[in-house]
Structure formats: C-alpha cells, structure tokens
Design a protein around this nucleic acid. Structure first.
Lengths: 210, 210, 210, 210
DNA sequence: CATGAATGAGTGTTCATTCAT
DNA sequence: AATGAATGAACACTCATTCAT
C-alpha cells in the first residue's frame, strides 16, 4: 500500500501538477463568480486568476463548457461523498438515525460554503445530466434506505414514490436551510425539523385510493 | 360609459400593440431558448423571431437583461396568480382542502409548460430577487394558512419554521413531480402524495427538545 | 414700409414660425453641445430639446449635416455683420481707428458667448468652405482697408500679403484674447495691444529683399 | 557591452513590433481621414488599413478615443521637438535669429504634411488639454526668449502679454502660411514676413496708458 | 509542454432616417 | 404639415480559441 503510493507519486509528478492546475482553474472560476458574477468568467480571466497561461488552460480543457462541466462534477462529487459515507456508516442503523445522518451530510455539504451550491446551480450553465445525476443518486440512496426498512415502514406503498418525495424534500430543505432559514431557526434545530418532516411523511398513513 | 369607452379605445390600440410586442419578444426568448439554447438568445435573434426590428426591441427594453427580468416577472406572476386564487377561494376551507388546492395550483402552473420553469430558473440569468420574491410569497401564503388554523395544528410550535418547511416542500415536490416523477406515479396521485406529505408534517408530534 | 411689413408678417406667419423652429433647432444643438458634448448631439435629442418632433426636424433639414452647416452659417453671419458694420462706419476714418473698430467688433463677437466659437470650430464638423468663407471675408475687409490707405502705409509692398498677415493676426489674437488671455491682461488692454500689434506690422519697414 | 546588447535585443523585438503596430494604427487613421473623411474612421476600418486584426488594435488601445489621443500626442510631440531644438540651438542668438528659427521650425512642421495639422485640429476630437498643452509650450518658449532679451526689448512692458501675442501670431500665421498663403507669397518670403511682423510688434512703442 | 500575442466572428446597442397615421 | 413608432445598417468592442515561438 505504502509502496505503491510512493511509486505512484514518484512516477507521476506530472499528473499531480496537472491535477493542481485543474484545481486552480476550477477555483479561479468560483473566485471570479463570487467576486464579479458570471459575466466576468472569461477564459482569459480564469487563466489569469488561476495563474496559468491561456494556452495552458486549453491544454487541460477542450473548451469553456468543459470547465463548467468539471466544476459541476467536482461539486456534485463532494456532496455525493458525504452521502455515501452516511449511507455506509448507517447501513445497520435505525431509519431515524439514517435519515438524520443523511440530512446532516447534506446540510454540512451546503454550509461549508453557503451560496456556492446555489451559485453553481443558478449561474453556471450545466447539462441537465449534471444535476440529474445527483438527484438520481440521492433518490437511489433513499430508495435503498427505505427498502431495507419496510418492516418499520408498513405504510409506504410505492418505493419509488417514497424515495422521490424524500429525496426532493431533503434536497430542497437542506439547501433552503443553509441559505434561507428563518432567523429564529438554528442550524441544529433545522436539521431536526427536516428529519422529522421526512420521518412524519414516511410513517404517515397512506393516502386513500384514487 | 360610451364616452369613456370611446376615449379609452382611442388610446388603447397603442397600448395594446405595445403589450403585444412585449409579449412577442418574451415568447421569442422562450422559443429560442427551447430550440437552440441560451447561447442563441441574442438580441438580434430575439427581434427576428419576435417579428420586430432590433430598434423596436430597444424601444421596449433598455437592455438585454431587462428582457430577462421581464420574462421572470411574467412567469412568476403567472404562478403567483394561481396561488393567490387558491388562497382566496379556500380561505374558509379546511387545512386539507387548502393544501390540496395550493398543490394543485402549483402543479398546474408547472405542467402547462413542463420544463419552462426549469429552463427559466437554470438558464436565464436572474437577480436573486426575482426568485426570492416568489419564495417569499409562497412562504407568506402558507404562513397565513397555518396561522388561521392553529386550532387544528396544535403541534406546530413555530409558525415561521413550519411555513419555511412547507413552502420548500411544495415548491420542490411540485416542480419535481411535473418534470421527474417516477413512471408509476400519475399526476393526480402525485398531487395527493405531496399534499399528504405536507399534512403529515404539519400534524406530526413536534421534535423533542435538544 | 410699414404697410408692406404688416402685409408680409400677415401673409407669412408660416415662414415666421418656420424661422422660429429653425432657430430652436440650432439653439438646441448648442445647448446639447455645451451640456453633454458632441457625442450627445443626435437628431432625436436635438428634436427633443428643441421641442419639435423628429419628423418636423427633417422637414426643415434634409439631414444632420445640413443642421451643422446652418449653425455655422448663422455663427459666421453674426461675426461678419459686426465686421461689415465696423467697416462701413469707419470707411473714412484713420487706419488706426478702423483697425481698432475691427478688433473691437471681433472681440465683441467672441465675448458675447465665449467658448461658443471654439466649440463650433473644434467640435462641430464643417466643410472647409464654412470657415474659409469667413477668413476670406476678413481678408477682404482688411485688403480694402489697407488699399484705401496706401498713402499712410508706404511700407506695405504687397496688398495680399499684408491683408493675409493682418487677417490671421486679428482672428487668432481676438479669439485667443476672448478665451485664453493672461490673467493680468484686461479685455480693453487686450484690444489695444492687438490693434497696436497690427499697426506696428503695417507701419514697419519692409523686409530686405531675398 | 555585448552582453547588454544581447539582453536588450532579446527583449526589444517585441517592443519594436509593438511600436510598429501602434505607428501603423495611427498612420491608418490619417490615411482614412484623408481619403474618406472622419465618418469612415471606424475601428474595424482602422485595423484593416493598418493590417492588424481588430482584436490586436484593442490590445494596444483601450478604446477609440485613446487612438485619437495618441495621434494628437504624436503630432504635437513632433512640432514640439522642432520648437525645442530651435530654442536650444539659438539660446545665445539674437532675438531676430531666434524668432526666425522658431518661425522656420513651425512652418517646417506644418509643410512636411500640409493639411494634416488642420485635419487633426478640425476633424479629430480632442480634449482641450491636447491642444492647450501645445499652446502653453509655445507661449513658454517665447516667454523665455523675450525674457532673456529685455535689454533689446525695452518697449515690452508685460512679459506674459507679449508672449501671448507672439505665440498666437506665430501659430496662426505659420499655419495659415502653410495652407492658405496668397499665391504671390512664396514660402521663404512668408517666413520672413511672419518674423518681421513679430519683431515689429516686439520693437514697437508700447500703447499709451488708458 | 508553456506561453501569450494575435485572431475575427459575433455581440449588444445606437441613431439617422422614413412613413403610416 | 406634424408626429413619433418603427426601421435596420453600422458601430465599438469582447472573448473563445489558435499557433508560432
């Protein structure tokens, strides 16, 4: 393990530098976005802020859109990592604990840099895929979580519907809580409230047939 | 009456034509957005598709951003109208009926042209205000609705928190239901499910103190 | 005389109004020029400031350049009137008195609205003719004045050369005196100095042959 | 020596090329101005005539006005150089020689490309500073010249007034001589005549007090 | 590989001018 | 005549992208 890591880091100093450059470029986009808005995000400006020549920038990205795509991939990846961790660590936990852990992970992801998520979602163009992919993962996470606890959740009739509702609730509420929660609602209280809302939904008596 | 009508009709044609032109321009933006994406939305192209000269376009809008702002205002206004109507018509109704009516209004607004909402939100630049204003109205609507029914909702401790949660739930779930609901979930069923989720949250026993 | 004047003013109220409109337009150009500079002088803006519709403006002037030409004609005409008056009133006067009268007329023309002359000369495009015409008239005035006093001016060898020198001196010095004379030089003193300079030149011993 | 030359020559080519590009752009403006008039002076046209891409043009000048400013600076600088040289070379010469040298310099500056001066002054927009600066320098030159020869010029009462008069005379007469001198007045004769006029003024008995 | 000068298609916007009312 | 909404050619300027060094 140690050996291979050493070998890898010795063999690929180039790749490490490349990775640093890519990171610098993505960070530059965020910096510019925050400071001057999307209109100021030009490739030349990105390169300048990243401390890279415009020529180098084009060595790492085929065009401007690829930069945005990478930025979204990185961002979604970060949130996803938190979710996956919560999912694994609470594989055997109660539904309540799992939900709380997932809400925790989501809010943490949003509060480490509040506004960044919204910035990326509303200002940086992205293929529907980029966001979809994330929604699908969240959906999948909850689908698994619910499926594994059908004993506890006898009122859940349709797994997909429940996962759909819960995923959307968690996404919107965590995002909203990080950015726009009412002044008298603390972050910890918000987490509890969101988890409670989710649990209330999952435990409620199903709707009458249509 | 006749006199005032005559007077009005002498002045109106101009105003009506102006309004038509404005509508044509906003519609053109949507058309281009759908067909060719945001990059194709140039002022000259808008004017062409709207059947208006570029000069006329600039007689109605001071610059490109003003067109986007107007587009957002129109869109939010349309949704808002549905919500306000539901709110008024169900002022004296039960909580359940009111929630169902509001969910109905929201989903209808999203399904008349599914994707338009998302298109505008993700692709057309807008000041935070434009969206915020709408979120605030939805929040206010639910705040009123809940406040008027505290007898029925003894478990709601904090009005703002409840309104916050419900507004975000409804917004995200209705939007999601219109665009991404699971295949086995019909629109009518989705409406019921969303309303049920909201009611389950509102009726649930509040969280224990931390 | 009175009768014909009355008749004329009754018969041509239209022409009088037309003249007023033209004046309003030319004045508007000057107003805009002073307030906002040449870039702000657009036909639409001129019409607005003049209190005339853009359509009417084009009834009086075939295009934008015609407005500038008329403005220059009016301005040159005003200065020219003063010069001609001085010339006629001092037809029989001494050279010294005539020169003083001409300098007086020139400076008065420039000081009634100091800066206007320069504004028109440097900012408003004009055919070479427009200015030339004026220079030629000044040249002509001095040519006549000198020619009529060759007895007094035995040192003047070439009439055209003398008129050329004097016309340029008077033009430049009067213009300069109105706008940029040194702080310790009053207007009256400037007039004397300019006249003296002109007279000194005219009375001086001619240059040795080349 | 060789080392520094090598060092310099490694950096210079870029600077030299840049300077050449700037010159090409300014020359292009003049070419277009002469051939097609000011209205044809568009940035795209300038770039085309200069043999440069429009993008490069904007790498050297922030906007169109900056091009005009540079053009004026270059032009004024050229004339100024001649004046300063004449001033230095004749620092110890007689007043007459100095005046003749200055008139010589001015006329030479105007005759190398007759019409260019007028073209720039009447057609190319320029801040008052650009021209003023030059007038001030000419004024200063004559002020020094006169101040250093008060022994010869006992009739000069006020230095500033004399410098003012002489500077304006020389400027206007040299400019006029280059462009509009009467047909029977050769350039050499014009020079003599202008110098004589200046000397006549400076040597004349001052005006009686008012 | 890195650089950054150079490119030029394409953008938002203006404004002189027209013409139906 | 007078109006002013409408027109659209033309402009100043930007910026994603290339490529010679």
């Amino acid at each position: 393990m140690t050996a291979s890591a050493t070998l890898r880091s010795r063999r690929r100093p180039v790749q490490r530098r490349a990775q640093q450059t890519v990171e610098a470029i993505l960070d530059a986009v965020i910096r510019i976005l925050k400071r001057d808005g999307f209109e100021a995000v030009t490739t030349n400006h990105i390169a300048e802020v990243a401390g890279v020549s415009i020529g180098s920038l084009y060595q790492y990205f085929p065009d401007k859109r690829a930069i945005f795509a990478a930025l979204h991939r990185r961002h979604v990846g970060e949130i996803d990592r938190g979710i996956q961790t919560a999912l694994i660590e609470n594989a055997a936990a109660s539904l309540e604990d799992l939900v709380r852990a997932l809400v925790d992970a989501m809010i943490d992801a949003h509060t480490s840099d509040p506004g960044l998520h919204e910035l990326l979602m509303t200002e940086v163009p992205h293929r529907a895929d980029d966001t979809q992919e994330f929604a699908v993962r969240l959906h999948g996470a909850f689908r698994l979580a619910i499926a594994a606890r059908t004993g506890e959740l006898m009122n859940v009739r349709d797994l997909d519907t429940a996962a759909f509702v819960v995923a959307h609730m968690v996404d919107a509420l965590c995002h909203g809580a990080a950015l726009r929660r009412p002044p008298n609602l603390g972050l910890a209280a918000a987490k509890r409230e969101i988890a409670n809302a989710v649990l209330a939904y999952l435990r409620a008596t199903p709707a009458q047939a249509a």
